[in-house]
């Protein structure tokens, strides 16, 4: 375990600063900037005065940010964790060092998970702040239900971290993690997570929704209530489930990464 944490820490440090030199990082930042830009437009053109209607806030933070941008940002950055080493054929150097192979996955995943979390939380914070009309300055988000601001940030944070672990593991499991990830995001999470029924519990989005809405149920409109007919999990239970998904993804990815051969052509 000591070797694992030591090697993971070294790889985390070495790759963290490299992340922002990659094209993927700038694509991820551009993606995260989309709801921010849209919020800025709403701020300029909207006719509401004072605090924004909560429906607008939920549309931005839940539907746009958590359901769409969070998995996409995680996908763009985390699917490259292992795939990049394989495609660039630098994995040979790491495989011939006296380190546990899971340390490579862990260290490199941590080096993307932190920037993902920061970028997404910054985007969420900017969206919320931008939706306040100028006249609200100084009210410090008092218009928001108590605890909602923190819940939004934590939901975005957890979503980014959990999805990034899933996509990092996909890089160890599959040859084309980006394609697999896109399919997972839009077909599995997007479809299954919004299809009425217990199937929702097999998705990350269900637990994120549970965390965000279980204490702010009034924010869910009638339509959403009908669609999301499955009872929401308690926030603590949702966090535990998300932690389990994260851990399961990393363990599965690490196990496959340890066993699998990566045949590189010269």
């Amino acid at each position: 375990m000591k070797d694992l944490t030591r090697a993971a820490w070294i790889l985390f440090q070495a790759h963290l600063w490299r992340i922002f030199r990659t094209r993927r990082a700038w694509i991820a930042i551009a993606l995260a900037g989309m709801p921010v830009a849209l919020a800025a437009v709403v701020r300029v053109v909207s006719h509401f005065e004072g605090p924004p209607p909560l429906e607008v806030l939920i549309t931005f933070t839940w539907f746009f940010l958590v359901q769409t941008i969070v998995p996409l940002v995680a996908l763009v950055m985390a699917s490259a964790v292992i795939a990049e080493e394989i495609e660039d054929r630098t994995i040979t150097y790491l495989f011939t060092r006296p380190i546990p192979r899971p340390a490579i996955l862990l260290g490199r995943w941590l080096a993307v998970a932190l920037p993902i979390a920061l970028v997404l939380c910054a985007a969420a914070e900017l969206v919320v702040r931008l939706l306040e009309k100028p006249g609200d300055a100084g009210r410090e988000l008092a218009w928001m239900p108590e605890g909602l601001h923190g819940s939004i940030l934590l939901t975005v944070l957890m979503g980014g971290v959990v999805y990034s672990a899933l996509f990092a593991a996909a890089g160890a499991l599959f040859k084309r993690p980006m394609l697999i990830g896109l399919g997972y995001t839009f077909v599995y999470e997007g479809f299954l997570g919004n299809l009425p029924g217990a199937n929702q519990k097999a998705t990350v989005v269900y637990y994120l929704r549970s965390y965000l809405f279980s204490e702010h149920r009034s924010l869910m409109g009638d339509v959403e209530e009908a669609i999301f007919s499955v009872p929401l999990a308690e926030p603590s239970s949702a966090v535990r489930s998300l932690a389990l998904i994260l851990l399961g993804a990393l363990v599965l990815g690490a196990w496959r990464f340890t066993k699998r051969e990566y045949v590189l052509s010269a």
């Binding site: 490299r18 660039d88 054929r89 630098t90 040979t92 150097y93 011939t96 060092r97 006296p98 590189l264 052509s265 010269a266």
Partner: peptide
């Protein structure tokens, strides 16, 4: 791996 060094053929570096 502590006792061996390997120089691969592929022109791959960070």
């Amino acid at each position: 791996y502590r006792r061996i060094g390997f120089c691969p053929q592929q022109d791959a570096l960070y």
